[in-house]
Amino acid sequence: MHKPHVTVAAIVKKNDYYLLVKERDKFTKKICYNQPAGHLEDKETLAQAASRELLEETGLTLAPMGLIGIYNLHAANGVHYLRFCFMFDGENIDDEPIPLDNDIISANWHTVEHIKTLPLRSHLVLQCIEDSQARPLQSLDFIYDD
């Protein structure tokens, strides 16, 4: 039976900057940039997973404001991902992000124009940012958690 990998991603915006993490792609071994993101864990809601990944990869504790979108990706590495992308408000963040996860090299703020020049983990990194600018957020109530 086919089972896609359920992942979450955190879009954090502060003024005109978006938070990305610098990491090494486990498939290609190349340095790339991604939103704070990762896999859903047992007994965790999607929103909780997004907040946990944000904390682990940036040291920031925030709650999501809403859902940007759901993305179905058949990646080049042969893995099927079902990605839930959440929006976080970074306007009141004064501290520099400090990754707690050893797999994260750094976490930094970037403009959209700069992000377009970076080696991205997937095209969904930019797609989710663009969608966050163009779409209304879905309420977290949109997701039923049992």
Rank of each mutant, 00 (worst) to 15 (best):
H74P: 00
G59M: 08
A49F: 02
E44K: 10
R83W: 06
A37W: 02
H74G: 00
S51W: 01
E57Y: 01
E23F: 06
A63H: 07
H74N: 13
L55G: 00
D25Y: 09
T45A: 06
A37H: 07
F27H: 15
R24I: 15
G78W: 07
T61V: 11
K22C: 13
A47Q: 11
G78E: 05
I31C: 04
N34E: 12
P64Y: 07
A75Q: 09
V21M: 04
K43C: 08
H39P: 05
K29Q: 14
P36I: 09
K22S: 12
A76D: 14
E57P: 00
R24H: 10
N77T: 10
K22Q: 14
P64K: 03
L55K: 09
A75Y: 12
E57I: 00
G78S: 03
L82F: 05
S51H: 01
Y71V: 09
G78H: 02
V21A: 04
C32K: 13
V79M: 08
Y71L: 07
G69D: 09
N34K: 12
A50E: 04
T28K: 10
Y33C: 10
L60W: 15
G66P: 02
E41H: 12
H74L: 13
A49D: 00
S51Y: 03
A47L: 00
I31R: 05
L82Y: 08
L55V: 00
H80I: 08
P64F: 05
L46A: 04
Y81H: 08
L46P: 04
L60E: 02
Q35D: 04
T28L: 11
I68F: 08
Q35F: 15
G59S: 06
T28N: 09
V21G: 04
H80P: 00
D42N: 10
A47R: 02
